Computed example of a mutant assay.
Amino acid sequence: MSAHILVAEDDERQAQVLRMYLRSEGYEATVVHDGRAAIDAARRLRPDLLVLDVMMPKADGLDVCRILRRESDLPVLMLTARSGEDDLLLGLDLGADDYMTKPYSPRELMARIRTLLRRAKGSTRQPEGGVLRVGPISVDPLHHEVVGPSGRQVTCTPGELTVLTTLAAEPGRVFTRRQLLDRTGGWDSSASERTIDMYMMHLRRKLEPDPRRPEYLITVYGVGYKLTPGRGTGEGGIEAR
C-alpha cells in the first residue's frame, strides 16, 4: 500500500508540481492551501507524512506543526522561504522532523520524503520482542514508548525515537552525527546534521533531570553523542517482554 502524503502549500502552482512528483513516485497525495485545512486534513485523513509550508493563510506552518505535534507523531517536513537559521531551528524545536529552504530541488525533496517514511516505519520495528533499557531509561520502539528516569512516559517524535533507539541499542558507544543520520536513513545535506543536535536538545529536556548537565545523553566533544546508564547504575540491555 503506497504512503499517503499531505501537502500544505498556499502556492497552487507549486502545490500541483509537488502533487505531480509525489504521484510519479507512487505516493497518494492530498493538497490543501491553508493552515486550517492542513490541520483538518491531518486529523481526518491520518496521512503518513505532512509536507508543510511555513507561510500560509489562516494558520502558518509553525502553528500547524505546534498543534499537530501535541496530537500525534506524524512526520513533518517543513518548507520555508526564510533563510535565517533561527527560523529553521524554531521549526525543528516545534517538532518538525526536517526542513528545506525555497527554492528547492523536487528530486531532493522526494529523497527527504523517502528518508522520513523509512525512519517512521523503522522506529516501530526494532528491536521486536524487547524493550531497551539503559539505566533508568527504557525505550520500546515497537510500541513507540519511552520512560524517563522519573518513571514517567515521555512523548517523542519519530526522529527523536529513532535516534534514542540507536543510542540505546549500544549503550556507551559514541555515534557521530553522520552515523546517526545514516542509522535513521539520513541524506547528503550538511545542514541536516544540525537536526541531530536539535533531537538531542529535545531528548535532554524530556529525559535529563538537568538538561544543562546531562547524566545520560552525553556529548563527546569533537566526535558525537552516546547514551550511558548514568552514575551508579548497570549497563542496561534488551529485556524481553
Rank of each mutant, 00 (worst) to 15 (best):
L62V: 07
L62S: 04
L62P: 02
L68E: 02
L68C: 04
R69H: 10
R69V: 10
R69D: 09
E71Q: 13
D73T: 15
P75H: 05
P75I: 10
P75R: 06
V76T: 05
L77Q: 04
M78K: 02
L79W: 09
L79P: 06
T80M: 14
R82K: 14
R82S: 08
R82Q: 12
D86C: 07
D87F: 13
L88V: 12
L88Y: 07
L88A: 10
L89P: 08
L89H: 09
G91N: 04
L92R: 01
D93N: 06
L94H: 08
G95T: 03
A96D: 01
D97Q: 03
D97G: 01
D97L: 09
D98G: 02
D98H: 04
D98W: 02
K102I: 00
P103L: 08
Y104S: 02
Y104C: 01
P106A: 07
P106S: 08
R107W: 11
L109R: 00
R112L: 14
R114D: 15
T115M: 13
T115I: 02
T115G: 14
L116Q: 03
L116M: 07
L117K: 05
R118W: 14
A120I: 02
A120R: 07
A120S: 11
A120F: 13
K121Q: 15
G122D: 15
T124E: 15
T124K: 14
T124M: 13
R125S: 15
Q126N: 13
P127F: 11
E128K: 11
G130V: 03
G130N: 06
V131F: 14
L132R: 00
L132G: 01
L132Q: 02
V134W: 09
G135H: 05
G135K: 03
I137C: 05
S138T: 06
V139M: 00
V139L: 01
D140L: 03
D140R: 00
L142N: 05
L142T: 10
H144P: 08
E145Y: 05
E145M: 11
E145V: 14
V146T: 07
V146H: 04
V147W: 07
